[in-house]
């Protein structure tokens, strides 16, 4: 039967993370995402030069709100260096370091601390790096410029730039040659607006990734899913502003849910807790792969392995 082909008029922009020694950095590889000219994995009507990648989520403090991870990897999660080093062993394509301890409600660690930690992580792993601030808009304006400076030359992906603090963070990323994650709260118009604002500061669109504020499975998944689809369709239809790659912070939206915390003796028909929690992360990732995820940030080694395998089959 004759296939129904929908040719895209445009491509998703291609974003590179990580600089090798040839490019003045110390990463073992340069990772590319984006560049597609079709909806996810529809190879019959376009190309997907770069398959989606999987990042290992690493915190600089024990993630108390992820009891299963905190317990199963208790010898690792208390040390961000050791944790980041697991990335390679667990098969992740890159590391996503979250500077949670800098939050005023946490340890309120300083910009100097953040810069120092990022240097140590860069020395401890050769994988490309994403650095995410603490999520406090004002505090991130202090720590992320220091991080950008400390990682100069390594072409990291720096986030989250929001409508409240993008100017400082984008300026810092520009000054040190990094790319940026523009984050907006589950709203396609705000996403577009922020991408315009960021690119108006002469940040090339090829150095912007979008985060629509990932909804966990069962916790707003459908909103994020549809916004991603709409962005991707718009990008393929020629809207360059909407054609930036997409990141999904799946670990953070999985391991704090009640499905990833409630033991089986409290919910007998929910099945084994350990398996259920990993399944929650895998199912969420498998869903977002279909709506246009380019970077999936995960926590459990089993999920990383499985999601990499799924991508391998589909790519």
């Amino acid at each position: 039967m004759e296939k129904v082909i929908e040719k895209a008029v445009s491509k998703i922009s291609e974003l590179a993370i990580g600089a090798t020694s040839a490019n003045g950095g110390t990463r073992e590889k340069e990772l590319k995402i984006g560049g597609q000219s079709a909806m996810p994995f529809l190879h019959f009507e376009g190309s997907m030069p770069n398959a989606p990648v999987v990042a290992l989520e690493v915190w600089d403090t024990v993630p108390e709100e992820w009891p299963l991870i905190a317990d199963e990897f208790k010898d690792i999660v208390n040390d961000p260096i050791k944790w980041a080093q697991k990335g390679k062993e667990w098969g992740a394509d890159l590391i996503s370091l979250r500077l949670e301890s800098c939050h005023p409600d946490n340890k309120n660690n300083s910009a100097a601390y953040a810069a120092d930690l990022v240097k140590k992580v860069l020395a401890a792993t050769k994988l490309p790096l994403i650095v995410i601030g603490c999520g406090h808009p004002e505090k991130d304006q202090e720590i992320l410029p220091a991080v950008a400076e400390a990682a100069k030359g390594e072409k990291i992906l720096l986030g989250m730039a929001t409508k409240d603090n993008y100017k400082t963070i984008v300026a810092a990323a520009l000054a040190s040659g990094h790319s940026i994650i523009a984050e907006s709260p589950l709203d396609i118009n705000l996403a577009k607006q922020l991408n315009i604002l960021v690119s108006d500061m002469s940040m090339p669109l090829e150095r912007i990734a979008m985060h629509h504020t990932t909804g966990g499975l069962g916790y707003g998944f459908e909103y994020c899913y549809s916004i991603m689809e709409r962005c991707r369709l718009a990008g393929l239809a020629g809207d360059k502003i909407m054609a930036t790659p997409i990141i999904n912070m799946i670990a953070d939206e999985t391991w704090k849910t009640k499905e990833a915390k409630t033991p089986q003796d409290e919910q007998p028909n929910w099945g084994d807790l350990h398996k259920r929690a990993i399944n929650w992360e895998i199912a969420c990732a498998a869903g977002y792969l279909q709506s246009g995820a380019d970077i999936l940030v995960l926590a459990h080694p089993e999920s990383i392995k499985q999601v990499k395998q799924t991508i391998g089959k589909l790519k």
């Binding site: 069962g218 929910w270 099945g271 259920r276 199912a283 869903g287």
Partner: peptide
């Protein structure tokens, strides 16, 4: 059930 709970949710 550890498979079906995420699937019915999705």
């Amino acid at each position: 059930p550890s498979i079906f709970l995420p699937l019915v949710t999705l």
